[in-house]
Design a binder for these strands. Sequence first.
DNA 1: GTATATGCAAAGTCTTTGCATCGTT
DNA 2: AACGATGCAAAGACTTTGCATATAC
Lengths: 146, 146
Amino acid sequence: MSVAQQLREHGYRLTPQRRVVCDTLDAAQGHLTAEELHERSSAVVADLSLASVYRTLTLLDQLALARQVRFADGRAHWEPAHDHDEFHLVCRSCEAVTHHPADLVTTVRDHLLHDHGFDSQRVELVVTGLCADCRNDSPRTSRVLG
Amino acid sequence: MSVAQQLREHGYRLTPQRRVVCDTLDAAQGHLTAEELHERSSAVVADLSLASVYRTLTLLDQLALARQVRFADGRAHWEPAHDHDEFHLVCRSCEAVTHHPADLVTTVRDHLLHDHGFDSQRVELVVTGLCADCRNDSPRTSRVLG
DNA sequence: GTATATGCAAAGTCTTTGCATCGTT
DNA sequence: AACGATGCAAAGACTTTGCATATAC
């Protein structure tokens, strides 16, 4: 079910603003900041304030329908909620963010719980480096990540 | 060698302000924010502005003598640089931050490089959950992490 | 003595909030 | 029709920066 539909099922009003933010979040390839989400959503629903984007994201976070990841830039990047562990691979050159399944995380969780009594609720694994494409490219198009 | 000494060896002036910030960073158990570092350092060197703390940290970061980690609160937390991979375990209840050696990270790096061509430069693994002490305690003293 | 570091205060960036108005249900 | 959501603008939190003064070398 779409994030927008889930919002409605929780009893919240489904305004055009909320709907477009949810849909844009759903459709996004990478992890969008509030501002990127605002830009893209505004192209569809012109009457959308940045404040509403933030309010919608806060709401989605509370309902566990979305969650934020902090990259080295310190800004919040948003993704629809999901229950599988994963890496975030951030390329320093092209800034692409990709997901990678993290089977090892289960091993980590088990180890922490059984050997150290630490009950993991949230595992955030961000790997910064150079993606395969950028390693092969000349550095002419490189940009340093914030 | 202390962080302060390394600063000097890089040719930078070793002012009382820089020295106390470096020493406080060196001595810290957990990961301090700029503000916490300012508080603790000010107790030793009264004439220390928050701006100087930030400037010193920026300098240490550039020289790779310190690095910052972002927790879910979005603020930068600082630690002396080191070359071993590690987890950051953040307890949601007591807010304690502990380090944990991360042998598995080597496996992760190798996998990403050989199977996916991704050259990892920085691996940041933050695990949020409940530490052993807090799992046993009554929840009366619990605080939710920002 | 001189170049560099500092404190202060102002500005910058990202995010949240107060309030009057608008719109979904 | 009523209550909740919105836009706007102001405020908040964290961090950076301009400038005159102080200081390490």
